[in-house]
């Protein structure tokens, strides 16, 4: 199993990168942006809203923190419009921790994204947890030297985001619910689509491949690359509803490269223990004894109670542009 580290030629033409000092030194290339995501693999990225939470996350072994104004669970409760986090908070956290820092911007909100790039966040999450700013278009991410992560609930969405320049994909799931069912549905949807692709590719059935690329509304070259690799060409994480060590182990066992945990840690009553145990279960996901040890560290009575995804007023995964 490999991952395509270099984008295809036609994508390279759209890349913005900076030449500095001399002709040779280049920043913001596809390789440098996707490479950053590769360093996050097998790790846990934790949602935080304050410096204290960021410190807890770093001490627990988070591979990066994701800064937002309100945790997804509180976004649901508060209603209204959810926007990118305060710059002051982002800067404070940046000065306190050594691990990478990511922040969320609204879907299609080019200015919020530019602001985050200027502050110097390590990765931008164009996220459906915030209220979408553009119902027609996502951000054209090739215009940034900062890498982006995007959510997807099926292969078509994932490939369309990669086409727009995304360097990393995560499942959408249903954020802030503490319920993993939607994330599992999205992971399996992507896996099944790739299995189908792989069999067309293996049988050299070009006609079916082209038909499938039309069905997924994605470019044929990216479809072929995915079929050849038999996986997404960028790093693929699970997100949306992960609350316990067992949840983390489950998504890793389904083939994800790592996990995002949102409300699951800091909306639980035992955040320190929970953060540590989820990290442990993510690394040793295929060793039931260690996952059990990790699960032992948390008390189910202290888990985020959670929500039934069938009766939600707000389905975050449905928000934003259709294509």
């Amino acid at each position: 199993m490999t991952i395509s580290l270099v984008a295809t030629e036609e994508e390279r033409n759209g890349i913005k990168f900076k030449n500095l000092h001399n002709e040779q030194l280049v920043q913001g290339t596809t390789l440098v942006k996707r490479g950053f995501a590769h360093m996050q693999k097998h790790g846990v990225i934790m949602d935080v809203t304050t410096v204290e939470q960021a410190q807890i996350a770093e001490d627990a072994g988070a591979v990066a923190v994701m800064v937002l104004d309100k945790l997804p669970y509180d976004v649901r409760k508060a209603g209204g419009v959810a926007r990118t986090a305060s710059i002051k908070v982002i800067e404070e956290i940046m000065d306190e921790i050594t691990i990478p820092l990511m922040a969320k911007c609204r879907i299609g909100h080019i200015s919020e994204a530019k602001i985050l790039e200027v502050i110097g966040v390590d990765m931008i999450d164009e996220s459906e947890v915030l209220t979408p700013a553009d119902e027609e278009n996502h951000i054209w991410k090739w215009n940034y030297t900062t890498p982006f992560v995007n959510g997807a609930k099926n292969l078509g969405e994932a490939l369309r985001r990669i086409e727009e320049g995304s360097s990393m994909i995560r499942t959408k799931g249903e954020p802030g619910t503490g319920n993993i069912a939607e994330a599992i549905r999205h992971i399996k949807q992507v896996n099944n689509d790739i299995r189908k692709l792989r069999s067309f590719y293996f049988d050299k059935d070009e006609q079916e491949l082209i038909k499938f690329s039309r069905e997924l509304k994605s470019s044929y070259s990216l479809i072929k690359e995915t079929a050849k690799l038999a996986r997404l060409p960028v790093v693929n994480f699970a997100a949306g509803g992960i609350s316990t060590p067992a949840d983390a182990a489950l998504v890793m066992n389904l083939g994800c490269d790592g996990v995002f945990v949102g409300s699951g840690i800091f909306k639980a009553e035992d955040p320190e223990q929970r953060a540590k145990s989820i990290v442990l279960a993510t690394t040793y996901y295929d060793d039931p004894t260690i996952v059990m040890e990790a699960q032992k560290l948390v008390d189910e009575k202290k888990s985020l109670l959670g929500l039934d995804t069938k009766s939600l007023e707000l389905r975050m995964q449905e928000r934003g542009p259709m294509i």
Binding site: Q24, Q27, P100, E117, P147
Partner: peptide
């Protein structure tokens, strides 16, 4: 520096 200073050479 941070990620936006990352580079190839």
């Amino acid at each position: 520096g941070r990620q936006h200073e990352s580079f190839e050479v």
